[in-house]
Structures are given as C-alpha cells and as structure tokens.
C-alpha cells in the first residue's frame, strides 16, 4: 500500500528535511519524527519522512534469522 524510499538527510530547517536518494534530492516533511539529524537515513513516503532507518537490510536479515 505504501511505496517507501530510503534517503539520507542532508539538512533540516523549519520542519522540512532535504533528503538525498543516490543523487535525487527533495524537501520532505520531517514533522513526524523527533530528533532527526543530518546524516540520518529516513524512509520517505508521499513527501513525508515516516520513520528513521536504523540499520541496513543485510544486517537486519541477520538479526531476524538470529532470533529464530
């Protein structure tokens, strides 16, 4: 239901974050996340950063399988 794109936060100003997805840059709303800093990775959906990304999917896969 919801396309999400991981992107890196370049800068933050007035509740808007400039994000970069491998060279494609756009301003998105950062209002739904507390404590966002430049350098953080976020999941972007419909022009809004909906979550902070805390890991890459490879080590996530490792931890998910480790829990089984």
């Amino acid at each position: 239901m919801c396309v999400g794109l991981p992107a890196k936060v370049v800068s933050i100003k007035d509740g808007m974050a400039l994000v970069d997805a491998s060279g494609a840059k756009r301003e998105v709303s950062a209002e739904l996340l507390d404590e966002l800093d430049p350098g953080d990775y976020v999941m972007v959906h419909a022009g809004i950063a909906i979550a902070k990304i805390t890991d890459d999917d490879a080590s996530e896969a490792a931890s998910v399988m480790g829990e089984l």
Partner: peptide, 13 residues
C-alpha cells in the same frame, strides 16, 4: 522489519 518499525511508531503522526 526492525530497522524501520518500532513498538511505538510515530507518536507525532
């Protein structure tokens, strides 16, 4: 999907 999903989600949202 713990790298994106937390127990509380986005309180602000």
């Amino acid at each position: 999907y713990p790298r994106v999903v937390t127990r509380d989600g986005s309180t602000a949202a």
